[in-house]
């Protein structure tokens, strides 16, 4: 379980990115941080693996304050997937996937075995892909490798920062479905950042909606649809409703 307590964050004295934010993320759930760009969702994500430190407030993972722990160890125990994927172009796929195990000093044999496992998990044939290089892969394949890399060290927590927003709509949907499958299979805690309300509703167990650094509402899909708590959330839900009625009108 992850607890964010009374978090505030400013990068410069006059701009506050996060205001008085408290949030609990339950073990095994997929929590989606939803909001438009600049709302602070990525900043919150990066506080969980201590890439960004809060100006005030506490971040607890399994009851331990991560601000009192070695940031390197914290990051190695958490899977991390970013929008640009960030595969290392000079390493082949196997080396890319097993890089965290390598950092942890695991023997080569284990790294190889584990690389094969996670590649299969994301639906790529290890024999075919292990010795290829990232630029020889399609965007969708690259993002799968990104997910495989995050899973390699078998972390119980996975942070995903808009991982599918750079791929085309068809591939995105495919990757979303695969993530849902993986979720069931692996029972990890996932914190997923997106600005896409449809993606949020597809993947989330619970959704946390952010606007201008403030938490608007946290709840299940049903809770949010049935009782939006702020004006912003209401407006946010208007868009899909409008689209739906327009679509029905056409039918």
């Amino acid at each position: 379980m992850i607890k964010l307590i009374d978090i505030n964050k400013s990068f410069t004295p006059d701009v506050q990115v996060i205001r008085d934010l408290s949030l609990e993320i339950h073990g095994g759930e997929t929590l989606v941080l939803l909001g438009s760009s600049g709302c602070g969702k990525t900043t919150i994500l990066k506080m969980i693996n201590r890439i960004i430190e809060p100006s005030s407030g506490t971040v607890l993972i399994e009851g331990k304050n991560i601000l009192e722990q070695d940031p390197i160890e914290v990051r190695r125990s958490i899977g991390y997937v970013i929008q640009e994927i960030g595969l290392f172009p000079h390493m082949n796929i196997e080396a890319n996937v097993s890089v965290v195990l390598n950092l942890k000093g695991r023997p080569e044999e284990e790294r190889k075995r584990r690389a094969n496992e996670v590649l299969e998990l994301v639906g790529l044939d290890p024999e075919q892909f292990s010795s290829r290089y990232p630029d020889e892969l399609s965007g969708g394949q690259q993002q799968r490798i990104g997910v495989a890399r995050a899973l390699a060290a078998n972390p119980s927590l996975l942070l995903m920062d808009e991982p599918f927003s750079a791929v085309d709509a068809v591939t995105r949907e495919l990757l979303q479905l695969e993530l849902l499958k993986l979720k069931k299979q692996l029972s990890k805690t996932i914190v997923f950042v997106t600005h896409d309300i449809f993606e949020a509703f597809t993947l989330a167990d619970r959704i946390a909606i952010l606007h201008e650094g403030r938490l608007q509402q946290v709840g299940t899909k049903e809770e949010i649809i049935s009782s939006p708590e702020t004006e912003f959330v209401e407006k946010l839900l208007m868009k899909p409703k409008k689209q739906l009625s327009a679509f029905q009108g056409l039918m």
């Binding site: 990051r75 125990s77 991390y80 970013i82 960030g86």
Partner: peptide, 10 residues
């Protein structure tokens, strides 16, 4: 983004 990725994985 490569630096971010390498930082993020520890």
């Amino acid at each position: 983004h490569l630096i971010e990725a390498s930082q993020g994985m520890g």
